[in-house]
Design a protein around this nucleic acid. Sequence first.
RNA 1: GGCCUCAUGGUCAAGCGGUUAAGACGUCGCCCUCUCACGGCGAAAACCGGGGUUCGAGUCCCCGUGGGGCUACCA
Length: 479
Amino acid sequence: MKKVRTRFAPSPTGYMHIGNLRTALYGYLFAKKEGGEFILRLEDTDSKRFVEGAVQIIYDTLKDAGIVYDEGPDIGGPCGPYVQSERAAIYKEYAEKLVKLGGAYYCFCDRERLESLKDENGVGRYDKHCLHLTGEEVREKLAAGVPYVIRQNVPEEGSGSYEDMVYGTVTVDFKDIEDGILLKSDGLPTYNFANVIDDHLMGITHVIRGSEYLSSTPKYNLMYDAFGWERPVYIHLPPIMKNAHEKLSKRNGDASYQDLVDKGYIKEAIVNYIALLGWSPKSNREKMTLKELEENFSLSGINKSPSIFDEPKLRWLSGEYIKDMPDEEFAKRARPFLARSKAYGKYDEEKLLKILKTRVEILSEIPEKIDFLEEYGPFDEALYFNKKMKSDAEVAKKVLPLARDLLASLEPFENSAIYQALVGLAAENGMKNGQVLWSVRIALTGRENTPGGASEMAELLGRERTLERLGAAMTALGL
RNA sequence: GGCCUCAUGGUCAAGCGGUUAAGACGUCGCCCUCUCACGGCGAAAACCGGGGUUCGAGUCCCCGUGGGGCUACCA
């Protein structure tokens, strides 16, 4: 059996979108699952669309996501170069060869004539005008330097079929396919042509790409057939949508890989999530590492219908990754976000992280979750009221002084000891635990909700700040 | 317009002729609990419509409707 070779062939025109990344991911997963190779090729034949820095983004994104290619522009390989703009001579040679084989022909029609072929709606296909030029006429024009393109010669009758691995049999009548341009007048190939030549020359066995190529695949096959080359297996992927009507794209939103990483989504979760968009594993387990995805990937699990990118679910997955992450790893990843908080550097980092770990799904939530530590100030005494805890300002007036005295000398000043002490205080004074705990927590933070209980907050704040705030709260209550 | 293609809860999806139509996210409720969160338990929620085929259709066929794509000297 031939070794499986897949490729990811992006055009360096900007950001890596989630859809692009998924196409790359599936190509990678399939190749690895089959023990094959995955290669990266840059399709930059349209100089007008070239965007500075886009190539680097492609390298960086793949690397960051853990998608490693076996051959590519920056690492080389036996089928290079892997950049189409550096392969112009190859395409020209093959285009001329295809002309000789009857699969293509020279066309000298100018734009004006081409325009005249279209109807009021701008539709109308080429009429094969130049196909009927004699060999002599072609030679003359070529010699005279008349600008030309090379067009594919699509049969006027019949149809082309192929078996797509996800969509099944796809058939298109040749009469619905135009004699597309293979080699532009600037000498560079169009996507269709360069793609076929490169995929063949690079030994690609499985073409994995978006479903937008579903109906143009028969014309690729025509070329493979004309050259006498073996056709690859096609695997078309449904689009990833922003909503029911729009495809995910930079223009519609900002769901590029980098944007998500910047927002603090855990990158493994992003990769995991997009693998699940359009593909479902045999088992019901959804959280999977790249390695596990490689092992479990299968073409039969690929879905045919478009899927909508659901950020809430990505959020959840990201949170799962955080919760399962070793503390040191979480610390490493959280630190840059921690640094954005006012509380950064003023509290014990380890304690902060511990509190954050189960309360954060994406890293960018970190600052907002702990900023409150530095936002202590006068607050409404109605906060002391809690029906379930049977607590209110009057209770607080009783509790706070006792708590302050108790905590002033408590050793060690640490969560469970503090908790035990406060509960003990409640018992001694015939109060409910909640009355003490609630009052203290409110006094310490001035907030109805905090990421942790009274004892945890006290530990975090430290003895000095705890006593200080207890004192301030008592003063506010008129004590 | 022509052609290709898709259609199960709000979202991702399982299902591949006979099921009480999985599971996950989200939502809601309950439990746990020093508030929040975590965790546990539970609930509501779906086969686009119409014709066939069949003893039997979410599953097969046709039509319709709706969505997406292609129809460039873009990829």
